[in-house]
C-alpha cells in the first residue's frame, strides 16, 4: 500500500447544502499533500470526515488500507482551523489530558512531553495556565498536543493562520522533520501560495468537487505554456524592443536601471528557445532567462475558468 489514505466517491450533505460531491482522493504515504481551494469549498468537511467528527452520506475512506474506524483516531493528529485550549487549565495537565484522550498512557505522555518541551524551548510552563501565556507560546503547546502521540497521519487546517512568522517557521521546520521521520501530512488552506513550496502533491477543490489532483511538479509542467522572463542589458533599448515585438509574442515589458535594462515576458512556440536565444544574444546581453512556472493559484484560476467555459 503506497497510500496512507484513500477517499472513494465521498458525498456529504448538510440539509440542502451539498458539501462534498463524489470526491475521490489518494494521499501517498510519507508525503506532504496540499488540499487547496477557496473558503467553503469542502476542505474542512473532508477533514472532519477523516477525523470521524462527521460521517459521509456515501462513499468510503480507507486508512492504511483498512476501512476507517474508531481505532484509527489514535493514529491521526489534527490541528483544526478553529483551535484553542482550555484557558484556565494548567499547561501540563491539559497536555496530559489531551494525550490520554488520544489513547496514550500517562507515563508515556509525560516522557514525550518532556522531550517536546525541551525541543521547542518550553521551560517551566508546566504549572502555568494557558491564559497566563503569550499567544505564541500557546501556539507551541497547541502544536505539541497535535503531534505528541506520534500519529501516522497529520492534518493541518490553515496551519499558519494565527502563527507569528517566527513560530510559523519553527513549525514549518518541525513539520518537515516529521515528514523525514515517516509521517504523512495533509495541509489544507485557501492561501495556496503559503504551502505550495512544501507540498509534493496537491488537490484543488472547488464548490464541493475536486478540480484536479496529482504530483505538483507534474501539474505545473502540464500547465506551463512556454512563457519566459527575459532580462536584457541594452544601451539603445528602443530599437531592440520594436524588432522583438515584430518577431515574437511579447506579453509585457518594462525598463529598469534608467533605461539600461529591459525586462519582458515572452511566449515562445514550444521547444523554440534555442532560436530565440540565438536571435537576442547577437543584439544584447542576456542577463536572465527563466521559464515562468504557474503557481497553484494560477492553475486554480485557469481550471475554474476552463470549467466555466466548457
Amino acid at each position: 500500500m503506497n497510500n496512507i489514505l484513500i477517499a472513494d466517491k465521498v458525498t456529504k450533505r448538510y440539509g440542502d447544502h451539498l458539501a462534498l460531491n463524489n470526491l475521490s482522493l489518494e494521499i501517498p504515504r510519507n508525503s506532504i499533500y496540499g488540499l487547496l481551494g477557496p473558503n467553503g469549498a469542502g476542505k474542512t468537511t473532508l477533514i472532519r470526515i477523516i477525523n470521524q467528527i462527521t460521517y459521509p452520506d456515501q462513499g468510503t475512506i480507507l486508512f492504511d488500507g483498512q476501512p476507517l474506524e474508531a481505532k484509527h483516531i489514535a493514529m491521526i493528529g489534527y490541528l483544526p482551523e478553529e483551535r484553542g485550549l482550555y484557558k484556565s487549565m494548567k499547561v501540563g495537565e491539559q497536555a496530559l489530558y489531551l494525550a490520554q484522550l488520544k489513547g496514550m498512557s500517562k507515563t508515556e505522555a509525560k516522557a514525550k512531553l518532556d522531550y517536546w518541551f525541551k525541543r521547542l524551548d518550553i521551560g517551566d510552563w508546566w504549572n502555568k495556565k494557558i491564559q497566563e501565556l503569550s499567544k505564541g507560546m500557546a501556539q507551541k503547546i497547541q502544536f505539541i498536543v497535535t503531534v505528541l502521540h506520534q500519529p501516522k497521519l497529520l492534518i493541518f487546517d490553515e496551519p499558519f493562520s494565527g502563527f507569528d512568522p517566527i513560530n510559523a517557521n519553527l513549525i514549518k521546520d518541525e513539520i518537515l522533520r516529521l515528514k523525514e521521520n515517516g509521517t504523512s501530512i495533509i495541509f489544507s488552506t485557501h492561501r495556496m501560495e503559503s504551502v505550495e513550496e512544501l507540498c509534493e502533491y496537491i488537490a484543488l477543490i472547488h464548490k464541493s468537487e475536486k478540480l484536479l489532483d496529482g504530483k505538483l511538479s507534474d501539474i505545473k509542467n502540464a500547465y506551463k505554456n512556454n512563457v519566459f522572463q527575459v532580462g536584457l542589458g541594452v544601451p539603445h533599448a528602443n530599437g531592440v524592443l520594436e524588432e522583438l515585438q515584430e518577431k515574437f509574442r511579447i506579453l509585457s515589458f518594462e525598463y529598469v536601471d534608467n533605461g539600461q535594462q529591459l525586462n519582458f515576458t515572452v511566449q515562445l512556440p514550444s521547444g523554440d528557445t534555442g532560436a530565440f536565444l540565438t536571435h537576442v544574444s547577437g543584439k544584447a546581453n542576456v542577463n536572465n532567462f527563466t521559464e515562468t512556472i504557474p503557481s497553484a493559484n494560477d492553475i486554480f484560476i485557469r481550471t475554474v475558468q476552463n470549467q466555466q467555459v466548457s
Binding site: I53, I76, Y78, P80, L85, K87
Partner: peptide
C-alpha cells in the same frame, strides 16, 4: 459555551465522540 469560545472543542472531538 466555554469550550466553544475557547475553540478547544474541535480538538477534543477529534479524539472522542461528541
Amino acid at each position: 459555551i466555554e469550550e466553544k469560545t475557547s475553540r478547544i472543542v474541535e480538538v477534543i472531538i477529534s479524539s472522542v465522540k461528541p
